[in-house]
Design a protein around this nucleic acid. Structure first.
Lengths: 189, 189
DNA sequence: CCTTTTTCTTGTCAAATGGCAATACGATTC
DNA sequence: GAATCGTATTGCCATTTGACAAGAAAAAGG
């Protein structure tokens, strides 16, 4: 679980006691492939830190087609942080696309951390906005690139991930059709 | 300045005294068209609330071409909130694309607000992450739409804005060339 | 091991978009 | 009002990408 602490500490220092407090509230959870950790319309009761497996954040159109907004892999937080904190329903789905294992923290324990660790709320705000800003920049950059460039950047930015996610999901993340992705892959080999 | 207060109060209630305190720290600033409110590499000393004019957040590639990430218009905050709070340099530019008028609050006064208004930091965190999430969702949706759909959605979502920004900037926001935008406009008239 | 199902690849064609250059339009300046 | 400058439009053609359908490969299930 040092990964979790190391990740959190990118956004603010914690004392040894505080780290212990955080870890004391962590519980393990397993999610089978195809299940959701967050569902649109529901209020999240916990957020998780992925230590094995891959998730994706996605949405559906009226025809039921799904589109991937981003992937969440080992060493990252997964969940609807804002809805989790404010008890508001999520507007998106987060789906396990492999069997996955998480360390989760409940909302109740989060409240405890907030009361015991003065800098906790600020740390979390920083973490959250850093993550959101990076996602936003990544997608925004993609908009001005052609499909092959987007794919190459994905390979570079997330080494190994392309081989662990279904190509249809990667395609919808890149904003192209599975056929196009297949042709691009063929091309650059 | 009631707009500013009304906007802020979407993310948390303030007492009359607290509103007064916020307003007491506001100063007016004018930025001529073509100038920057935020520059990449520099640390912002203030954030602003636009009450007249339009800004855009943009970045440049090695060839010097500029790309628009989003527009900021009347009734919205403008600035590099995270860099502003943490004294870290911005990674993007924010340019006035018309003559613009702002109400700005300095970092020093922000610190005062934080100390005087217990919920200020939380309110700000909510505001920030709501804004970021919306931007992120907007761009992410665009990635799976064709150019015309993106333009129509823009018209619907930001009525009137299309006529107030140069088409080259709107085109780069939409991820298309100015020629394509011109053809789309011709088509749907 | 074979069947079934899902995912991925490939072919063909049409549609969308970009690149480039010429022209038209509009605003400014003199 | 003429000249100038920046911006927007348009034409032409090449390229990219999508749609659809068929086939191949891989995974899942008995």
């Amino acid at each position: 679980m040092e990964q979790l602490i190391a990740y959190v500490e990118q956004f603010g220092q914690l004392t040894a006691a505080q780290k212990g407090l955080v870890l004391a509230g962590v519980e393990e959870q397993t999610i089978p492939k195809g299940n959701y950790f967050v569902e649109s319309g529901k209020i999240s009761a916990s957020i998780g830190f992925v230590y094995d497996g891959i998730f994706r954040s996605c949405y559906y159109n009226k025809q039921g087609d799904s589109f991937t907004r981003y992937f969440i892999y080992e060493g990252r937080f997964v969940g609807d942080i804002n809805g989790f904190l404010d008890r508001t329903p999520s507007s998106e789905y987060i789906e396990a696309i492999t069997d996955a294992k998480l360390w989760v923290i409940s909302r109740e324990y989060f409240a405890l951390l907030e009361s015991q660790i003065p800098a906790w709320a600020q740390l979390l705000a920083r973490l959250n906005s850093s993550v959101l800003e990076n996602k936003m920049r990544a997608v925004s950059n993609m908009l001005t690139q052609d499909a092959q460039t987007r794919y190459l950047n994905f390979l570079e930015h997330y080494p190994g991930l392309a081989n662990r996610v279904p190509q249809s999901m990667l395609a919808s993340y890149l904003g192209i059709t599975p056929s196009s992705l297949s042709r691009i892959r063929k091309n650059i080999t």
